[in-house]
Simulated assay, not measured.
Amino acid sequence: MHSMPKPPAQMPAFDTWNAALAYAANAIGARGFPDALAAALRLIAPFQMMNGFIYSPNGHAFDLYNEKIVAERAIIVDRYLAGAFLLDPFYDAVRKDQAERMIVMRDIAPDDFTQTEYYRLHYGTTEIIDEVGFVMQLENEFTAVLSLSRTGTAPLFSDQDIERLRAASPIVCVLGERHWRHVPSLSLEIKNAAPAARIEHPLLTRRELEIVTLILKGHSNISLAAVLDLSTNTVKVHRRQIYAKLNISSQAELFRVFMA
Protein backbone atom coordinates (compact mmCIF):
# COMPACT_ATOMS: atom_id res chain seq x y z
CA MET A 1 0.00 0.00 0.00
CA HIS A 2 1.41 3.36 -1.00
CA SER A 3 1.55 6.14 1.56
CA MET A 4 -0.36 9.29 0.77
CA PRO A 5 2.00 12.14 -0.17
CA LYS A 6 1.56 15.42 1.62
CA PRO A 7 1.48 18.24 -0.92
CA PRO A 8 3.80 21.14 -0.13
CA ALA A 9 2.02 24.01 1.57
CA GLN A 10 3.83 26.48 -0.68
CA MET A 11 6.42 26.65 -3.40
CA PRO A 12 9.94 25.78 -2.24
CA ALA A 13 12.25 28.64 -1.40
CA PHE A 14 13.80 30.13 -4.53
CA ASP A 15 17.33 29.15 -3.48
CA THR A 16 16.22 25.56 -2.75
CA TRP A 17 14.55 25.23 -6.16
CA ASN A 18 17.55 26.78 -7.93
CA ALA A 19 19.94 24.44 -6.12
CA ALA A 20 17.87 21.40 -7.10
CA LEU A 21 17.74 22.51 -10.74
CA ALA A 22 21.48 23.20 -10.76
CA TYR A 23 22.13 19.72 -9.36
CA ALA A 24 19.96 18.17 -12.09
CA ALA A 25 21.60 20.26 -14.82
CA ASN A 26 25.04 19.22 -13.59
CA ALA A 27 23.97 15.57 -13.83
CA ILE A 28 22.97 15.78 -17.52
CA GLY A 29 24.59 12.89 -19.35
CA ALA A 30 25.17 10.94 -16.13
CA ARG A 31 23.20 8.03 -14.70
CA GLY A 32 22.02 10.15 -11.78
CA PHE A 33 20.19 12.74 -13.88
CA PRO A 34 16.66 11.22 -13.68
CA ASP A 35 16.84 10.95 -9.89
CA ALA A 36 18.11 14.53 -9.62
CA LEU A 37 15.30 15.80 -11.86
CA ALA A 38 12.70 13.80 -9.91
CA ALA A 39 13.99 15.24 -6.63
CA ALA A 40 13.60 18.77 -7.96
CA LEU A 41 10.05 18.11 -9.21
CA ARG A 42 9.00 16.55 -5.90
CA LEU A 43 9.72 19.91 -4.29
CA ILE A 44 6.67 21.33 -6.07
CA ALA A 45 4.38 18.28 -6.43
CA PRO A 46 4.95 14.86 -4.83
CA PHE A 47 4.54 11.72 -6.96
CA GLN A 48 5.36 8.03 -6.65
CA MET A 49 6.72 7.11 -10.07
CA MET A 50 8.59 8.67 -12.98
CA ASN A 51 8.99 6.83 -16.25
CA GLY A 52 9.03 7.55 -19.95
CA PHE A 53 8.87 6.35 -23.54
CA ILE A 54 10.15 7.47 -26.95
CA TYR A 55 8.02 7.50 -30.11
CA SER A 56 9.51 7.35 -33.60
CA PRO A 57 7.99 9.15 -36.59
CA ASN A 58 7.27 5.79 -38.25
CA GLY A 59 5.13 4.35 -35.46
CA HIS A 60 7.48 2.58 -33.04
CA ALA A 61 7.79 3.01 -29.28
CA PHE A 62 11.00 2.61 -27.28
CA ASP A 63 12.15 2.77 -23.68
CA LEU A 64 13.22 6.23 -22.47
CA TYR A 65 13.44 5.78 -18.70
CA ASN A 66 11.97 2.88 -16.77
CA GLU A 67 14.88 1.89 -14.55
CA LYS A 68 12.90 2.12 -11.30
CA ILE A 69 10.20 -0.29 -12.53
CA VAL A 70 10.80 -3.88 -11.48
CA ALA A 71 7.75 -5.96 -10.50
CA GLU A 72 5.40 -4.31 -12.98
CA ARG A 73 7.86 -4.10 -15.87
CA ALA A 74 6.02 -6.71 -17.98
CA ILE A 75 2.87 -4.56 -17.71
CA ILE A 76 4.23 -1.04 -17.85
CA VAL A 77 7.07 -1.55 -20.31
CA ASP A 78 7.07 -4.85 -22.23
CA ARG A 79 3.35 -5.00 -23.05
CA TYR A 80 3.33 -1.28 -23.76
CA LEU A 81 6.20 -1.47 -26.24
CA ALA A 82 4.70 -4.58 -27.88
CA GLY A 83 1.75 -2.49 -29.09
CA ALA A 84 -0.40 -1.27 -26.20
CA PHE A 85 1.12 2.20 -26.68
CA LEU A 86 -1.26 2.60 -29.63
CA LEU A 87 -4.07 3.02 -27.07
CA ASP A 88 -2.23 5.51 -24.85
CA PRO A 89 -3.74 9.03 -24.82
CA PHE A 90 -0.21 10.43 -24.46
CA TYR A 91 0.82 8.70 -27.71
CA ASP A 92 -2.21 10.14 -29.47
CA ALA A 93 -1.45 13.60 -28.10
CA VAL A 94 2.16 13.69 -29.32
CA ARG A 95 1.22 12.31 -32.74
CA LYS A 96 -1.08 15.30 -33.19
CA ASP A 97 1.23 17.91 -31.66
CA GLN A 98 4.91 17.34 -30.90
CA ALA A 99 5.40 20.75 -29.27
CA GLU A 100 7.28 20.86 -25.98
CA ARG A 101 4.72 21.12 -23.21
CA MET A 102 3.11 19.37 -20.26
CA ILE A 103 0.02 17.22 -20.84
CA VAL A 104 -2.43 15.92 -18.24
CA MET A 105 -3.93 12.47 -18.72
CA ARG A 106 -7.40 13.32 -17.46
CA ASP A 107 -7.59 16.30 -19.84
CA ILE A 108 -6.86 14.32 -23.00
CA ALA A 109 -8.25 10.82 -22.34
CA PRO A 110 -11.47 9.77 -24.18
CA ASP A 111 -14.73 9.82 -22.23
CA ASP A 112 -14.81 6.05 -21.53
CA PHE A 113 -11.07 5.62 -21.07
CA THR A 114 -11.36 4.27 -17.53
CA GLN A 115 -13.74 1.55 -18.78
CA THR A 116 -11.27 0.10 -21.30
CA GLU A 117 -9.30 -3.12 -21.02
CA TYR A 118 -6.14 -1.09 -21.57
CA TYR A 119 -6.93 1.02 -18.50
CA ARG A 120 -7.85 -2.05 -16.45
CA LEU A 121 -4.63 -3.88 -17.32
CA HIS A 122 -2.19 -0.98 -17.37
CA TYR A 123 -3.54 1.49 -14.82
CA GLY A 124 -5.52 -0.89 -12.65
CA THR A 125 -2.70 -3.37 -12.22
CA THR A 126 -0.02 -0.74 -11.59
CA GLU A 127 -2.34 1.32 -9.34
CA ILE A 128 -1.65 4.49 -11.32
CA ILE A 129 -4.51 6.88 -10.55
CA ASP A 130 -3.25 10.08 -12.16
CA GLU A 131 -0.52 11.01 -14.59
CA VAL A 132 1.08 14.04 -16.22
CA GLY A 133 3.70 14.01 -18.95
CA PHE A 134 6.39 16.31 -20.30
CA VAL A 135 6.74 16.22 -24.09
CA MET A 136 10.34 16.45 -25.29
CA GLN A 137 11.80 16.70 -28.79
CA LEU A 138 14.74 14.40 -29.51
CA GLU A 139 16.87 14.15 -32.64
CA ASN A 140 15.59 12.83 -35.98
CA GLU A 141 11.99 13.82 -35.19
CA PHE A 142 11.67 11.40 -32.28
CA THR A 143 9.39 12.53 -29.47
CA ALA A 144 9.58 11.48 -25.82
CA VAL A 145 7.14 11.73 -22.95
CA LEU A 146 8.45 11.69 -19.38
CA SER A 147 5.58 10.86 -17.03
CA LEU A 148 4.96 11.57 -13.35
CA SER A 149 2.37 9.32 -11.72
CA ARG A 150 0.37 9.25 -8.52
CA THR A 151 -0.43 5.71 -7.40
CA GLY A 152 -2.37 3.71 -4.84
CA THR A 153 -4.17 5.78 -2.21
CA ALA A 154 -2.46 9.05 -3.16
CA PRO A 155 -4.76 11.92 -4.10
CA LEU A 156 -5.04 13.12 -7.69
CA PHE A 157 -2.76 15.95 -8.72
CA SER A 158 -4.47 19.10 -7.49
CA ASP A 159 -5.06 22.16 -9.63
CA GLN A 160 -2.20 23.78 -7.73
CA ASP A 161 0.07 20.80 -8.46
CA ILE A 162 -0.80 20.99 -12.15
CA GLU A 163 -0.21 24.73 -12.23
CA ARG A 164 3.21 24.38 -10.61
CA LEU A 165 4.31 21.51 -12.85
CA ARG A 166 3.08 23.31 -15.95
CA ALA A 167 5.03 26.41 -14.95
CA ALA A 168 8.13 24.24 -14.54
CA SER A 169 7.63 22.40 -17.85
CA PRO A 170 9.87 24.62 -20.02
CA ILE A 171 12.93 23.94 -17.87
CA VAL A 172 11.98 20.26 -17.42
CA CYS A 173 11.71 19.78 -21.19
CA VAL A 174 14.99 21.56 -21.87
CA LEU A 175 16.91 19.57 -19.25
CA GLY A 176 15.35 16.31 -20.41
CA GLU A 177 16.13 17.01 -24.04
CA ARG A 178 19.76 17.78 -23.22
CA HIS A 179 20.07 14.48 -21.35
CA TRP A 180 18.14 12.18 -23.69
CA ARG A 181 18.52 13.86 -27.10
CA HIS A 182 21.17 11.40 -28.28
CA VAL A 183 19.78 8.16 -26.89
CA PRO A 184 22.59 5.56 -27.18
CA SER A 185 22.16 2.94 -29.93
CA LEU A 186 18.64 4.14 -30.70
CA SER A 187 19.37 4.36 -34.43
CA LEU A 188 20.54 0.74 -34.50
CA GLU A 189 17.53 -0.33 -32.44
CA ILE A 190 15.19 1.41 -34.87
CA LYS A 191 16.96 -0.14 -37.85
CA ASN A 192 16.50 -3.63 -36.45
CA ALA A 193 13.01 -3.06 -35.06
CA ALA A 194 10.08 -5.29 -35.90
CA PRO A 195 7.36 -3.82 -38.16
CA ALA A 196 5.46 -1.02 -36.46
CA ALA A 197 2.46 -2.16 -34.42
CA ARG A 198 -0.89 -1.58 -36.08
CA ILE A 199 -4.52 -2.35 -35.37
CA GLU A 200 -5.59 -4.39 -38.38
CA HIS A 201 -7.65 -7.48 -39.25
CA PRO A 202 -8.40 -9.13 -42.62
CA LEU A 203 -12.14 -9.42 -41.90
CA LEU A 204 -12.71 -5.74 -41.20
CA THR A 205 -13.04 -2.76 -43.49
CA ARG A 206 -10.97 0.38 -43.08
CA ARG A 207 -13.91 2.16 -41.43
CA GLU A 208 -14.48 -0.75 -39.06
CA LEU A 209 -10.80 -0.76 -38.08
CA GLU A 210 -11.07 2.97 -37.41
CA ILE A 211 -14.02 2.31 -35.12
CA VAL A 212 -12.23 -0.59 -33.40
CA THR A 213 -9.26 1.66 -32.69
CA LEU A 214 -11.45 4.35 -31.14
CA ILE A 215 -13.37 1.79 -29.07
CA LEU A 216 -10.13 0.33 -27.70
CA LYS A 217 -8.89 3.84 -26.87
CA GLY A 218 -11.98 4.50 -24.77
CA HIS A 219 -14.44 6.42 -26.92
CA SER A 220 -18.12 5.89 -26.13
CA ASN A 221 -20.68 5.57 -28.94
CA ILE A 222 -21.50 9.25 -28.51
CA SER A 223 -17.82 10.21 -28.73
CA LEU A 224 -17.32 7.90 -31.72
CA ALA A 225 -20.20 9.57 -33.52
CA ALA A 226 -18.75 13.02 -32.87
CA VAL A 227 -15.20 12.08 -33.94
CA LEU A 228 -16.33 10.31 -37.13
CA ASP A 229 -19.23 12.65 -37.93
CA LEU A 230 -21.72 9.78 -37.88
CA SER A 231 -25.04 9.28 -36.12
CA THR A 232 -25.03 7.30 -32.90
CA ASN A 233 -27.28 4.68 -34.53
CA THR A 234 -24.80 4.24 -37.38
CA VAL A 235 -22.00 3.72 -34.87
CA LYS A 236 -24.08 1.09 -33.07
CA VAL A 237 -24.70 -0.74 -36.35
CA HIS A 238 -20.97 -0.73 -37.17
CA ARG A 239 -20.19 -1.99 -33.69
CA ARG A 240 -22.65 -4.88 -33.97
CA GLN A 241 -21.24 -5.82 -37.37
CA ILE A 242 -17.67 -5.77 -36.02
CA TYR A 243 -18.55 -8.00 -33.09
CA ALA A 244 -20.43 -10.39 -35.41
CA LYS A 245 -17.53 -10.64 -37.87
CA LEU A 246 -15.09 -11.36 -35.04
CA ASN A 247 -17.54 -13.66 -33.22
CA ILE A 248 -17.15 -11.76 -29.95
CA SER A 249 -19.54 -10.06 -27.55
CA SER A 250 -17.47 -7.77 -25.30
CA GLN A 251 -14.77 -5.13 -25.32
CA ALA A 252 -12.54 -7.48 -23.32
CA GLU A 253 -12.69 -9.98 -26.19
CA LEU A 254 -12.09 -7.18 -28.68
CA PHE A 255 -8.97 -6.19 -26.77
CA ARG A 256 -7.68 -9.77 -26.80
CA VAL A 257 -8.20 -10.05 -30.55
CA PHE A 258 -6.00 -7.04 -31.26
CA MET A 259 -3.66 -6.83 -28.27
CA ALA A 260 -2.95 -10.48 -27.46
Results as ranks from 00 to 15, higher is better:
251 Q>Y: 10
187 S>I: 13
212 V>Q: 01
194 A>H: 13
228 L>M: 12
118 Y>D: 04
205 T>H: 11
177 E>H: 11
167 A>T: 13
134 F>V: 05
134 F>A: 05
109 A>F: 02
132 V>T: 07
18 N>P: 09
164 R>N: 06
62 F>I: 05
76 I>Q: 15
187 S>Y: 00
165 L>A: 04
115 Q>N: 09
128 I>V: 14
158 S>F: 08
87 L>I: 04
57 P>K: 00
241 Q>S: 14
108 I>C: 00
67 E>I: 07
84 A>W: 07
234 T>W: 07
25 A>G: 13
72 E>I: 04
17 W>K: 01
35 D>Y: 09
110 P>E: 00
189 E>Q: 15
231 S>G: 13
138 L>P: 03
237 V>W: 01
189 E>W: 09
204 L>W: 05
41 L>E: 09
38 A>R: 11
19 A>N: 10
90 F>T: 02
103 I>A: 04
13 A>T: 11
101 R>W: 04
152 G>T: 03
224 L>C: 02
62 F>E: 11
131 E>M: 15
32 G>M: 08
154 A>F: 04
113 F>I: 02
253 E>D: 04
99 A>P: 00
79 R>M: 06
180 W>K: 01
18 N>D: 14
41 L>M: 09
144 A>G: 00
195 P>H: 07
26 N>S: 12
7 P>H: 08
252 A>S: 14
140 N>Q: 13
235 V>A: 10
62 F>A: 12
190 I>N: 09
167 A>M: 11
19 A>D: 14
127 E>N: 13
237 V>R: 14
90 F>I: 02
57 P>E: 08
70 V>E: 15
58 N>H: 12
199 I>W: 00
114 T>Y: 10
61 A>E: 01
38 A>W: 08
228 L>P: 06
203 L>Q: 08
79 R>S: 11
188 L>I: 15
170 P>Y: 04
213 T>Q: 02
